[in-house]
């Protein structure tokens, strides 16, 4: 079904614009048109559909569910919820406080907050359409593993002691928010549609420029970088290339939408999969602006621990995937 976008791109780039298919510019332009049309089509379709379904899943219910859950299972569930809930950095504080004040341990809450930016419906969809299901599966499993392992680790070191005092107090009191403040709503189809529409416009508004930037960079790499450049220069998976990729990803603050088209080009040009994954996850999840927000509820010490934890786990994942793929 998606091959129609290849045809549209071929037609626009080669017939209408008259570019030669084997030229660098022709390749880059064709790539750009194919990926942007495909991505926008999928985003509009999927965000709307998923938002329609999600109109009935509310975060309060997720919290109540996790609060009652057996601990070992809760990390996994929390990470899963994080994956299916779209991430907006502005909701990380309310979600964090809501979970914490319901007595959910910090680690379980962080499983949610670590997985959320890494995996979401848009990311999974783009991975599926651009790099195929095997890499998508690896990406999702790795993302959830990092969320779960990070959460378990934070509870092992008793991270709640490193919260801001008011947040720690709320955790120890562990009360549900006052019932009288709760708003219960039952949504009609009309309201669901409105919710989905607002959600779609909101997400589009937030990510459209990333799609163009990401696909633009991906297209430039695709057209102008010599084929197999990475394979010749970094292809044997030099150990230092993974931490370098992670570090390079930190200042490149982006979201999954912007980085996945780049990922596609990097893989095609022969960058080892583990290095590519490490780079992408670091770009998406290790961003200073979002971490600074969490300062309101955590001490610097805890923030530093979590940040370091992320960088280390991306590096380990990169090495691991590289070593498996070489064999």
């Amino acid at each position: 079904m998606l091959s129609i976008f290849t045809k549209i791109a071929d037609w626009l780039a080669y017939s209408i614009l008259g570019l030669a298919p084997d030229s660098k510019l022709g390749g880059a332009v064709q790539f750009f048109i194919e990926d942007t049309t495909k991505i926008f089509f999928l985003i509009v379709l999927m965000i709307y559909t998923i938002a329609l379904i999600r109109a009935s899943l509310n975060i309060e219910r997720v919290r109540d569910y996790l609060a009652k859950k057996n601990k070992i299972f809760a990390y996994l569930m929390s990470s899963t919820f994080g994956a299916i809930t779209p991430f907006c950095s502005c909701s990380s504080i309310p979600v964090f406080l809501g979970f914490t004040s319901a007595g959910i341990p910090v680690g379980i809450t962080m499983s949610f907050l670590l997985t959320s930016p890494l995996i979401n419906e848009v990311a999974v969809l783009m991975l599926l359409s651009l790099v195929g299901w095997e890499i998508t599966l690896i990406y999702v499993l790795v993302g959830m593993a990092i969320g779960v392992a990070g959460g378990v680790f934070l509870d092992l070191i008793r991270a709640e002691k490193l919260l801001q005092p008011f947040a720690l107090k709320a955790y120890q009191k562990a009360e549900f928010a006052d019932e009288k403040h709760m708003i219960k709503t039952k949504l009609s189809f009309r309201q669901r549609h409105d919710f989905a529409k607002v959600e779609l416009l909101d997400i589009l508004n937030r990510i459209w420029k990333w799609v163009f930037i990401g696909v633009g960079l991906g297209a430039a790499l695709h057209g102008f970088m010599p084929d197999l450049w990475f394979e010749e220069n970094l292809g044997s998976g030099q150990w230092w290339s993974v931490p370098m990729a992670v570090l390079a990803g930190i200042p490149l603050y982006s979201n999954a939408t912007g980085v996945i088209p780049i990922m596609e080009s990097l893989i095609v040009k022969g960058l080892p999969l583990g290095t590519t994954l490490a780079f992408c996850m670091s770009t998406v999840a290790a961003s200073f602006p979002e971490f600074i927000l969490l300062k309101q509820v955590m001490t610097w010490k805890l923030l530093t621990i979590i940040f370091t934890l992320l960088l280390l786990s991306f590096t380990l994942v990169g090495w691991l995937v590289n070593s498996i793929y070489v064999l």
């Binding site: 509310n58 975060i59 309060e60 919290r63 502005c90 909701s91 504080i93 309310p94 979600v95 406080l97 809501g98 004040s101 008011f166 947040a167 709320a170 549900f176 928010a177 006052d178 403040h181 709760m182």
Partner: peptide, 9 residues
């Protein structure tokens, strides 16, 4: 935010 139990803004 905590006092009112707000989880979605």
């Amino acid at each position: 935010i905590l006092k009112y139990g707000v989880m979605t803004t």
